[in-house]
């Protein structure tokens, strides 16, 4: 694994200003940021590991544990909120049997709320994997999942 990551990180050797792009690349590669990967970034950049961790945990984009195969993101932007995003969230939690911010034990699903995805005119919005679903109704989420989840 070290070799795999080293290849990803090599363009950034010694560049302290490139920490966030490095974290993004590593997450792209692994799906999340492992402690080992963050240590390697610290070594590559010469930054203290506590600093690498501090920066990584500041940003909502980064995950620190393995994610599910399917990722469902419930938009919690204002437009979505006034159009009932909270109920949509409850419905997905019931449907997938996991709470927001967690991953199912079989690593099939991860569920989270995200700040505005910028599709406010379609509120309430849910993003399943790459698909954006607009005007979501709580009664129809089984169909949404059916349409977008990977086998």
């Amino acid at each position: 694994m070290e070799e795999r990551l080293s290849a990803v990180l090599s363009p950034y050797e010694g560049r302290k200003d490139a920490l966030i792009p490095m974290l993004q690349k590593v997450q792209e590669e692994l799906g999340y940021l492992s402690e080992e990967a963050m240590l390697l970034i610290a070594r590559t950049t010469g930054m203290p590991e506590s600093h690498v961790y501090g920066v990584a945990t500041f940003y909502a984009q980064f995950y620190f544990s393995r994610r599910g195969k399917n990722q469902t993101k419930i938009c919690s932007g204002t437009a979505c909120h006034v159009k009932g995003a909270a109920r949509v969230k409850d419905a997905f939690e019931r449907e997938l049997g996991i709470s927001c911010g967690s991953t199912s034990a079989d690593y099939e699903h991860s569920l989270e709320t995200v700040a505005c995805v910028g599709s406010c005119a379609l509120a309430p919005v849910v993003v399943v994997n790459e698909d954006v679903h607009g005007q979501v109704q709580t009664g129809k989420i089984d169909k949404i999942l059916e349409q977008s989840i990977k086998d």
Binding site: S76, G77, T78, A79, C80, H81, A115, C116, G118, S119, C120
Partner: peptide
């Protein structure tokens, strides 16, 4: 960095 929830002009 258009962070306001409910805004997508810059996007």
């Amino acid at each position: 960095d258009e962070g306001d929830p409910g805004a997508f002009m810059d996007r």
